[in-house]
Amino acid sequence: KLATQLLVDLAEGCHTHHFNSLLDIIEKVMARSLSPPPELEERDVAAYSASLEDVKTAVLGLLVILQTKLYTLPASHATRVYEMLVSHIQLHYKHSYTLPIASSIRLQAFDFLLLLRADSLHRLGLPNKDGVVRFSPYCVCDYMEPERGSEKKTSGPLSPPTGPPGPAPAGPAVRLGSVPYSLLFRVLLQCLKQESDWKVLKLVLGRLPESLRYKVLIFTSPCSVDQLCSALCSMLSGPKTLERLRGAPEGFSRTDLHLAVVPVLTALISYHNYLDKTKQREMVYCLEQGLIHRCASQCVVALSICSVEMPDIIIKALPVLVVKLTHISATASMAVPLLEFLSTLARLPHLYRNFAAEQYASVFAISLPYTNPSKFNQYIVCLAHHVIAMWFIRCRLPFRKDFVPFITKGLRSNVLLSFDDTPEKDSFRARSTSLNERPKSLRIARPPKQGLNNSPPVKEFKESSAAEAFRCRSISVSEHVVRSRIQTSLTSASLGSADENSVAQADDSLKN
């Protein structure tokens, strides 16, 4: 292990032709098999893994070397290190390495390699500790012929580059190093199909959405987006994914797998022009299946994007999809995704031109529960009313008269009656009930004795009459309010007539 670390330190600071010789020695160290011998017992696995620490030291050392060589000349050094790393990870899946030390190597290698970024000039870069990406002036992410390196360097940008540029090249004859992302992409596909350690798979799935944002990485080298989509959909639809995973937390289920895969599918929607129609349908189907899991909100957001990006695919699945959405409970976490999906859909009339009455009724059935102001915040309630109004205007004229009683009944049950079921009123009724029952229970537990009763009969009569009056008032709060309003209006009217009579009498006395 110490000798391997010494080789790594020497290679990191070497800029001459001896660098390749040092890498040859490190490569021989990495070539050791990580498969346990067949006769190895389970209690000896930890000791055997400790004997392979030099392999881990070599791989982690290459990660440090690549981070240094990416910004220094010659660029061919970075290319050689990158290829060695990718080849080593491929061996893991070729020979099915399952030892804990092998999983640790893959975890740290993917953690580093999935941080690679590219700008519009195809320059590769890595983020620093502050998250700012520094791009290399010597390494690009696409394949290029050595003699055409300078031509590639002087080509115009596709868009303004992001991030601070690296140091300027030493001279005009500098050759750019090619670090094609397709090599890593193929290893990522192998990981999605064969990885057995949940920690490694979770890391890859968590980092892929951010990497897919940099389309330069994908399009400048032959990366098959179709295969990526197929691998992701197979993970969700195939039963073998959960069987092969180990190291998963207790209670791990298909729902947890959906939570990890759906963000990658959402990021892949922007590549729909490069996906086969069959793959697009598979993607939409997987998102529909996710509606029954805890990732339902993410799936609804993804389907909203699909309705804009892939209208030809979503239009066929939309009638059944809208009916499925009615089975989702009206909760605060689902309110905004569902209502925004319906609001977006209302502005795309070509998608729902074939809707029948059942689909329009489903839209109103989804939106009406969110009009309850005692359960949802003001934004959700306003958005629900907006969706109902928009869809009522957009639905066909023959359907409107049939939906009017349905909508008014839903609004009455969710908006008007919600004020009668407020917690304050319920607590008031509970308190009044307890007050009504309390005197009775006290009389049963403690019967009054005439000799020891010091309270006069008049006081008892007053208290009983007050309790009886309170019971009468607490029967119905709404009736009490109505009666008080009527009494107030009658009182004001009587006072007004009394004032008029007094004024008339005063005038008569003055005349006399």
Rank of each mutant, 00 (worst) to 15 (best):
I89Q: 00
L158I: 11
K240S: 12
V204R: 00
E210W: 05
L189S: 02
P74R: 02
C141F: 02
T68P: 01
K152L: 10
L201V: 05
L203Q: 12
G149S: 13
R207Y: 04
D142W: 02
L73R: 12
Q90M: 09
V140P: 02
F219M: 11
I89Y: 00
G206I: 05
P161F: 14
S49L: 05
R186A: 09
Y71L: 04
Y181P: 02
Q190K: 11
K153E: 13
R117P: 01
R134M: 05
T154L: 12
L62D: 01
L126R: 04
Y97I: 02
P137N: 08
L85D: 01
A231T: 08
H88Y: 01
I218R: 02
W198M: 01
V64N: 15
L212M: 05
L208A: 01
K202G: 05
L205P: 00
L217Q: 06
L70Q: 01
Y93K: 01
E151M: 12
L99G: 06
A50T: 13
E250S: 11
L217Y: 02
K94V: 12
S51T: 12
I105Q: 00
L115W: 07
P209F: 04
R106H: 00
G131K: 06
D197I: 01
L188P: 00
M144S: 09
G247S: 08
L124A: 11
Y138D: 02
F219S: 10
S211D: 01
R246C: 09
A50H: 12
V140D: 03
A75D: 03
V216R: 08
C229V: 09
K202A: 06
A102Q: 01
N128K: 07
R186Y: 07
R80Q: 04
L99E: 04
G149A: 13
K152E: 13
M84W: 01
G125L: 02
T241Q: 07
Y138P: 02
V64S: 15
S178I: 13
L188M: 08
P249S: 07
L60S: 15
K199H: 14
L126P: 00
P100Q: 06
V140W: 03
K240F: 10
S136A: 04
L201F: 02
S96N: 13
L192R: 00
P239D: 14
R80F: 02
S103G: 10
P157N: 11
F252L: 12
F252R: 02
S120L: 05
P209A: 13
D142L: 03
G251R: 06
Q227H: 10
V179F: 09
L126D: 02
L63R: 12
C191H: 01
G61E: 00
L60D: 14
S103K: 10
P161Y: 12
L205K: 00
A231D: 05
S76G: 08
V132A: 09
S96D: 13
Y138T: 08
D54Q: 01
L232C: 06
K56E: 13
I105L: 07
S155V: 10
N128T: 09
Y143H: 06
G131N: 08
P222G: 09
D226V: 04
A102F: 02
G206W: 07
L115C: 13
K129L: 09
Q227T: 11
H92P: 00
C139N: 04
T79S: 11
V64C: 13
R117M: 01
V64K: 15
Y71W: 04
L66H: 01
S234T: 12
S211N: 09
L228P: 00
K202I: 02
